[in-house]
Simulated assay, not measured.
Amino acid sequence: MKKLIYLIACAFILIFHQANAQEVSYFGEKITESGAIEATKLSEKMKDKKTMEAKVTGTIVEVCKKKGCWMTVDIGNNQKMRVTFKDYAFFVPKDANGQKVVIEGVAQKEVTDVATLKHYAEDAGKSKEEIEKINKPKEELTFEAKGVIIKKK
């Protein structure tokens, strides 16, 4: 009888654990979540620096629809940070929108030219009209990730 109760308890624990478990996927270099800061705090942390090594956590807003070769992460105030992958060595799933992410690499403040902005808009599946409206460079915070963790629930 004790064995039966023990087996039932183990089964409940296993079912509960599986229901609450997060699926975690790694891309690029294997990194950990330890020491990651919120993406909304990155700009503040960088202050006047043009580049900074960082580990950041946030939410994926959009992924390149063609290959998963870039993604954007919410950095607050209705802004997104474009994340590319070091040496174009890995991609992320194209259906990762809305998932939690940890990225490690180099953040940088840069100006993205019109041609590149149009290319990104095309990769994102934007309409021809939306792409044609892009007519000036954009100052933005970007990130080159050497490793990525995507957490699904």
Rank of each mutant, 00 (worst) to 15 (best):
D95W: 09
I31F: 05
E129F: 05
T116Y: 10
K153G: 12
D74R: 03
S34T: 14
E139G: 07
L42A: 00
F12D: 07
V106N: 06
N77W: 12
K55D: 05
F143C: 03
C69I: 10
K136L: 02
A19P: 00
M52Q: 10
A121W: 03
F12I: 13
M1I: 08
E139L: 07
G105D: 01
K146C: 11
I131M: 07
K47A: 14
K55W: 07
C69N: 07
A21T: 11
L42D: 01
T116F: 12
E23F: 11
I31E: 04
F90Y: 14
T84V: 14
I15S: 09
K153A: 11
E44Y: 14
G98Y: 03
G58H: 03
T142Y: 05
K30G: 06
E140K: 10
I15M: 15
K128I: 12
A89V: 05
T116H: 14
K153Q: 08
Y120P: 00
L4E: 15
K45R: 14
K47C: 04
K133I: 00
D48V: 04
S127P: 08
K67D: 14
G28K: 01
E132N: 15
L117S: 10
E139K: 12
K49W: 02
A121T: 02
W70V: 06
A36P: 00
T84S: 14
A115R: 09
K152F: 12
K45G: 04
E140N: 09
K55Y: 07
Y6D: 08
V106G: 00
T112A: 04
E29R: 12
